[in-house]
């Protein structure tokens, strides 16, 4: 029983850590799609921000400058997307894919030229990295049964970004549902003609939404390279941008359900790490490749059947062209 409880606490702890980039990227996608812009470049923005953050942190030895660089680069990528798709009405999916591929090549190319370490950045240590926060009294209460481990493992001892990601959920819900900006954002994704008629610029609304998308992806990517890991690695985003997109659809473009969808994917990932090499009674040892494929298979299964009817924002993916 004791052992089982410990396992649950550790899985919950891992779920929180893994879900952080997913939540940030999914919320980033939420702003874009609610404004009517499909963004499959969440993956590229995570990876690009991870690269920019690790590079600047490695050179300046400042994690905060790294964060600033990550956000700046992700916003710049979002602005390329906006320029192609909002200003010039280009195909949003094609533009997203272009950014994904561009970043996948650009990161290793620049890293190799600047650091000569085979397309990685040097390891970042100390002040160049964001470290977990230990909450007051965490060490002291760790030995108290039940409450101790919960406080020590799940509530305390995470990176700043983990708390930011979770706090971004109510913040996003408030912005989307309670503010004038949110109302306009939702309107521009459902019925851009109406927004245009009201004298509000559709294009400017979408630009603003994509700036927010860039900021959130920038934070998520920074977490990947200089908080969760200690440097930039080739393809380190590993499909998380796409899983975030699936979580967004599974959460039906709403902040809270999207967060729980991210938790579900992160939980699958946390469980798969624990399942590796474990002999399950009646089944035996599941090959590691199958376990690693779990989150991807889950994505397909959820998209295929258990979402219910997922209705995207009506104008999502359609360029808005003012009548001539």
């Amino acid at each position: 029983m004791e052992e089982f409880f410990t396992m649950i606490v550790l899985i919950a702890d891992a779920t929180l850590r893994v879900s952080t980039p997913l939540i940030l990227a999914a919320l980033a996608g939420l702003y874009a799609e609610r404004s009517g812009v499909v963004d499959i470049a969440l993956e590229g923005k995570l990876l690009g921000a991870a690269f920019a953050a690790a590079t600047v942190a490695a050179v300046t030895h400042s994690a905060w400058l790294g964060l600033a660089a990550g956000i700046t680069f992700a916003v710049a990528l979002a602005m390329i997307h906006a320029y192609a798709c909002v200003t010039h009405k280009g195909d949003q999916v094609v533009s997203g894919m272009a950014i994904n591929i561009l970043v996948a090549g650009l990161g290793p190319t620049l890293a190799l030229a600047w650091f000569r370490q085979g397309g990685q950045t040097p390891r970042v240590e100390g002040g160049a990295r964001f470290h977990p926060w230990s909450w007051p009294g965490a060490e002291a209460v760790a030995d108290i049964p039940v409450i101790g481990p919960i406080y020590f493992e799940i509530i305390s001892g995470h990176n700043m970004f983990v708390y930011i990601a979770v706090l971004c959920v109510p913040l996003t819900a408030w912005v989307i549902y309670k503010t004038r900006f949110g109302l306009r954002l939702r309107a521009v994704g459902e019925s851009p003609e109406a927004v245009d008629t009201a004298g509000i610029s559709v294009d400017w609304m979408r630009y603003q939404a994509l700036i927010v998308t860039g900021i959130l992806c920038g934070i998520g990517g920074t977490y990947l390279s200089i908080a969760q890991n200690a440097g930039f690695l080739r393809n380190m985003s590993a499909g998380q941008g796409f899983i975030a997109l699936a979580a967004l659809i599974f959460g039906k473009w709403r902040p809270w359900p999207t967060m729980f969808a991210c938790f579900l994917f992160a939980f699958t990932d946390a469980v798969q790490t624990r399942l590796q090499g474990v002999d399950i009674p009646g089944i035996g040892i599941i090959p590691v490749q199958f376990i690693q494929a779990l989150p991807f298979a889950l994505t397909v299964i959820l998209l295929a059947g258990f979402v219910g009817k997922a209705v995207a924002p009506r104008a999502s993916g359609i360029p808005y062209i003012k009548e001539r």
Partner: peptide, 10 residues
């Protein structure tokens, strides 16, 4: 990536 961007999206 640049070719996809300029020949496709842009």
């Amino acid at each position: 990536g640049l070719v996809i961007l300029f020949s496709g999206a842009m």
